[in-house]
Amino acid sequence: MTVGARPARRGLTRSGREGRLGWLMVLPYVLGMLLLVTGPLIAVLGISLTQWSLLDSPRWVGARNYLRLANDPAFVRSAGVTAVFTLGILAVNISAALALASLMNTRLRGIGIFRTLVFSPVVMPVVAWALVWKFLLQPQGPVNAGLQNLGMADSNVLFNPSTALWTVIVIEVIKAVGLNAVIFLSALQGVPPELHEAARLDGATPWQAFRRITLPLISPTFFLVFIITLIGALKVFTPIFVLTGGGPADSTTTLILYMFKQGFQFFEFGYASAVAAVLFVLVLALTLAQWSLRKRLVFYED
């Protein structure tokens, strides 16, 4: 079926009509975005310069919230928690993803089942996944019982301030690593097998072949996964909130959780916005670094 071209409206050139049409098409989304994202983003920066609780009206305090941040041990602590959480996720997720991708890349009968199993936590609803683990890690639960059977002391890893953060990291990596693994897998499958064959004939060990052939060839993917996992880790809220609520003793309170507590438990809107602004600058810097570095790496892609 075709629609007849309407005669050009008077006074508008073809590119003028195109321009109007373009705006018309993006307008519904863009209006909503400006109102609900871009506007609030600017507003956060403004609110961060005020003192504002739920009930009173905002009072201008200049940079005082930021000065308070610098001297707030709880904020400094949560920045540290965020750093450990982010770097921990990065290290564990990426090395596990590479290992899993190499396993998935073996040409075994039934390897698809393995891929399905490793990927299924990725589609598992976030809260359900966190709750299952919270159940498994209860003091009377199976993980603790298993650890004790192995001769370890009663170690409630999720409820102990010195182990809770790493426990959350591991749970989050098991949930998400399948995604990075299949991304690595498709990169690994782009490595020509002849190169490995040649290296083997030249007497290279598997590790040397991986280090000198595979890794350089998948480096654009590696970099991409690295940055996306890094930024993704900074955004993690729900699993931590469900598993520990930031505890015990604030040992899993990352910056996002700290912002949420200040904003929606203590209703310190100004202070919470200052925390948000710090995170915003951090994410923005990482994103810009990603884009500029990617432009240089685009060379390698395809």
């Binding site: 983003l41 507003a43 900074l234 919470a272 948000a276 994410v283």
Partner: peptide
């Protein structure tokens, strides 16, 4: 920008 920024950060003004 709307895609990259964690949506939690804009929660206060949205609320």
């Amino acid at each position: 920008l709307a895609m990259m920024v964690p949506s939690e950060l804009t929660a206060v003004p949205q609320f």
